[in-house]
Design a protein around this nucleic acid. Structure first.
Length: 274
DNA sequence: CTCACGCCCTGCGCGC
DNA sequence: TGCGCGCAGGGCGTGA
């Protein structure tokens, strides 16, 4: 479900509400991708200072240490008052009960994770997860020149390079297809075959597509909603994702699907050049 | 380094 | 209606 825009929309929806809260208790459900790394009771009494994002990770700064949250493929967060909150269901695997509400992770497939890093971002645990991440596409630090250099340094097909997250983070399988369609570049094009002009178009496409998705409250392709259960606005219709055989919105040719790294890529073989 | 692949786990939609 | 299959928005580890 969640790519960068969805994670960011989730973050914005509850970060102000939880900031300053004191942790009253914490509860684990079934095992997630990785163990939490400490007994949940040990979190009691700490304060939640802020919620930040790095790539698709949410970083919950505590008065001591840091929680790294990842939503995996099927995860979602809710933040609600303890009163009236339903009992944890079979797919609710983490509850952080605070003085200002309960943060609950719901994740049927359990590819998500909640990991405690005692030393914050400098912690070995955090470094292992965050250390190799690429540039943040919506930050000022995401520079066209650095992006172009990154493309030149790899022969990998551009779709796979974008998905890999080592050059730029947060572009998941849906937005990778969408961004390449917007830029008019074939997903099969070797990254280093993309010249400066097209690299610049791709750079702009990444920024504009992701920023628009955040503005719209996250793309609602299936069932995304923020931490208050509010869905995205549906304005951002996918141009190519999951539209195999349907007409291209620009040239009406049937859109294609190919497998890259065992994952589906959708594109228009006429509008998107190698 | 890159790549292909397996794997983690559950749910859904499809064809039969 | 029920069943089996393929597929799903992520990402890590392994081995070639």
């Amino acid at each position: 479900m969640p790519e960068l825009p969805e994670v960011e929309v989730t973050r914005r929806s509850f970060a102000p509400s939880i900031a300053g809260a004191r942790i009253l208790s914490a509860h684990l459900g079934k095992p997630l991708r990785w163990p939490l790394g400490l007994a949940p009771q040990a979190l009691v009494g700490r304060r939640v200072l802020a919620v930040r994002r790095r790539g698709k990770y949410l970083l919950v700064d505590l008065s001591e240490g840091l929680l790294l949250l990842h939503l995996g493929m099927s995860g979602s967060l809710r933040f609600a008052p303890a009163e009236g909150l339903p009992a944890a269901g079979p797919h609710d695997h983490f509850d952080l009960v605070t003085t200002q509400g309960v943060l609950r992770l719901h994740d049927p497939r359990r590819f998500g994770a909640v990991v405690y890093a005692p030393q914050g971002e400098e912690d070995p645990v955090a470094r292992k997860l965050l250390g190799k991440l690429g540039m943040e596409p919506l930050e000022e630090s995401f520079a066209p020149a650095a992006f172009y250099q990154g493309l030149q340094a790899s022969r990998t097909p551009i779709k796979l390079l974008l998905l890999g997250g080592k050059l730029v983070v947060g572009v998941g399988n849906i937005y990778a297809s969408e961004v390449l369609f917007t830029a008019g570049i074939s997903p099969l094009a070797p990254a280093n075959s993309i010249g400066p002009r097209r690299a610049r178009r791709l750079y702009e496409a990444i920024r504009s597509v992701l920023a628009a998705a955040v503005e719209q409250g996250g793309t609602t392709l299936k069932d995304f909603s923020n931490a208050y259960g509010m869905p995205g606005h549906f304005q951002l219709q996918a141009q190519v994702y999951d539209r195999e055989g349907l007409p291209c919105t620009r040239c009406a040719a049937p859109l294609r699907r190919v497998l890259q790294g065992q994952r589906s890529t959708f594109y228009c073989s006429y509008c998107q050049k190698l």
